[in-house]
Design a protein around this nucleic acid. Structure first.
Length: 503
RNA sequence: CGCGGGGUGGAGCAGCCUGGUAGCUCAUUAGGCUCAUAACCUAAAGGUCGAGAGUUCAAAUCUCUCCCCCGCAACCA
């Protein structure tokens, strides 16, 4: 494990409000960041999120809202930050592409690439739909009408700047093959490789004429152009944590060889991150990130989430209804990371009742009751002399738990659901052990020492589980800690009261 | 002949790379127990692993053919 850990979410495009997908990526990154803060020192972890604020669609959304672009993005950013606060997202830095630190780095990067002759200007030809403000290439068209609005298109010819990514295709293929951890999960790596084998990369158009779009970062070597949003956006990962020195070398405390760099993304933007981004870095002479981790999508009642269908899930509503940690738990547990998941409230309730109420919540509450009943609320002190075989097994399970979680999260593919399964193992063992130990008999028969050892191991399980849970469910972890107390319990109410079928 | 993902007990999935008694969670049923949130524990029922052919002593797993479902336009994690 490297000394430092730098994890990012994508910077979210602020032309609309955040939805379940944004919250999923961010919760996953937050959980990793929290876990790594425990594994490394807190100050050796940096968790970055932010917003992508330039481009045509934002300008259009701003126009529709009757605001200037800047006013519009300022407004939406507040929504995102509000959601992250509500979801308990522990980001260390929040970058906006309209910030000066970002603009300066993007412009410097462009100039460096231009000086290295990695960028050239060329005439660009395409079909333009003026009402939609969208460009279409010949191959996207079946007739001469706009695929979106079915209105006639206009043939436009203009000068734009292109980045020579085609020159890097074979380098990229080799790099991906030689670094199997670069794109995760492995199935995504195959996807990218097969894409690169089948297609020949064409140079990336990285500018837009100012006459058509003014809401962007000005290209330093042309007054008539602003930067294309994707080039602008990807640079955020380096502009947030460093900059170019006078010689044009990138300098950063978070991009050295001692840092593990992870970009958490959704599968829809894999192409940009696995193809464009490495090439940009390579051309600038900057090291590659360690891992690009692309997760799947959430389907809503088995259908693709879509603004036009109107089935977009608002995370705030779910959080208000079920609670932050229940929402976090559901997203991280219900689907193996990487695959598409199916979101429904029935599924949340099912998960809630079986895992949180029946298994974990019930274990905590029955234990609290026993401590209260048999020991008047005082937590028995550790007793090592009585160990039956089952206690030994539970102790071994607890001892190995941290390692198991670490393996699930770091050794393979950010397997959150597996990590949570591991945390539930001691919970289940403890619930079984209650049946075996029959504490009510121990109490009746006056077997004081056995009873104490028994209660003590339950308390140990709960403490350890609570601690292990803290990256995933931070609030729950502290609630458990508060209820089980140090020397004296604070019984309170059941942590996750079962949701009965009320429909 | 476009590309990719998938089809495993009622539901959701693992297993397939590296063939060898088909496994997990939930739901169902029966029993046990009472510390506990009708919770917990134990047990049972339930599958010709999409169809067919081939390789093999042996195929969910390898090969071939076919059938069906979902993405591959936009918003967008």
């Amino acid at each position: 494990m490297k000394q430092k850990f730098y994890i990012t979410t994508p910077i979210y495009y602020v032309n609309a409000s955040p939805h379940i997908g944004h919250s999923y990526t961010t919760i996953a990154a937050d959980t990793m960041a929290r876990f790594m803060r425990g594994a490394l020192k807190k100050e050796n972890v940096l968790f970055l999120t932010g917003t992508d604020e330039h481009g045509q669609k934002i300008q259009k959304a701003a126009d529709e809202a009757g605001l200037s672009a800047q006013e519009f993005v300022d407004k939406v950013v507040v929504q995102f930050k509000g959601l992250w606060e509500k979801l308990n997202i522990s980001y260390d830095d929040f970058i906006r592409t309209t910030q000066q630190r970002h603009i300066a780095t993007v412009q410097r990067a462009l100039q460096l690439l231009y000086d290295k002759k990695e960028i050239y200007s060329a005439k660009y030809e395409g079909w333009y739909c003026t009402p939609c403000e969208i460009f279409w290439t010949q191959t996207q068209l079946s007739d001469s009408l706009c695929p979106d609005c079915k209105r006639p298109l206009e043939k436009i010819r203009e000068v734009n700047y292109f980045f020579k990514i085609s020159a890097y295709q074979s380098w990229l293929i080799d790099y991906i093959k030689n670094n199997p951890r670069f794109i995760q999960p492995a199935s995504r790596q195959e996807e990218v490789l097969s894409f690169l084998h089948i297609n020949t990369l064409s140079d990336l158009c990285i500018s837009r004429p100012t006459q058509r779009l003014s809401w962007g970062i000005p290209v330093p070597f042309s007054k008539e152009h602003v930067t294309y949003v994707w080039f602008d956006a990807l640079i955020n990962y380096i502009s947030a944590v460093g900059g170019f020195d006078a010689k044009g070398d990138y300098v950063s405390g978070w991009w050295g060889d001692d840092t593990q760099i992870v970009h958490m993304i959704g599968k829809d933007i894999l192409r940009q991150h696995a193809v464009y981004w490495p090439i940009i870095l390579k051309a600038l002479g900057i090291r590659m990130p360690d891992t690009i981790c692309a997760h799947g999508w959430w389907l809503i009642d088995a259908a693709k989430m879509s603004k036009s269908v109107g089935n977009v899930v608002n995370p705030l509503e779910m959080v208000d209804k079920y609670g932050i940690d229940v929402y976090r738990y559901f997203l991280l547990k219900d689907v193996p990371f990487g695959l598409d998941g199916n979101f429904s409230e029935e599924a949340i309730v099912r998960r809630f009742n079986s895992d949180l109420a029946n298994d974990l919540g019930n274990l905590l509450y029955r234990t609290l009751t026993m401590v209260e009943k048999y020991y008047q609320g005082a937590v028995p002190s550790p007793r090592n002399e009585i160990y039956d075989e089952r206690i030994t097994r539970i102790v071994a399970c607890l001892a190995g738990l941290h390692r198991q979680i670490e393996d699930a999260l770091t050794a393979t593919t950010f397997n959150f659901s597996l990590a949570l399964e591991k945390i539930w193992e001691p919970v289940s063992m403890a619930n079984k052990y209650v049946e075996d130990a029959k504490p009510w008999n121990l109490a009746k028969e006056g077997k004081k020492e056995e009873l104490e050892a028994f209660i003590r191991i339950l308390v140990d399980v709960i403490r350890q589980v609570g601690h292990s849970l803290s990256p995933f469910m931070p609030q729950t972890a502290s609630q458990i800690e508060a209820q089980i107390g140090k020397n004296k319990i604070n019984k309170g109410q059941p942590l996750f009261p079962r949701i009965e079928n009320t429909r």
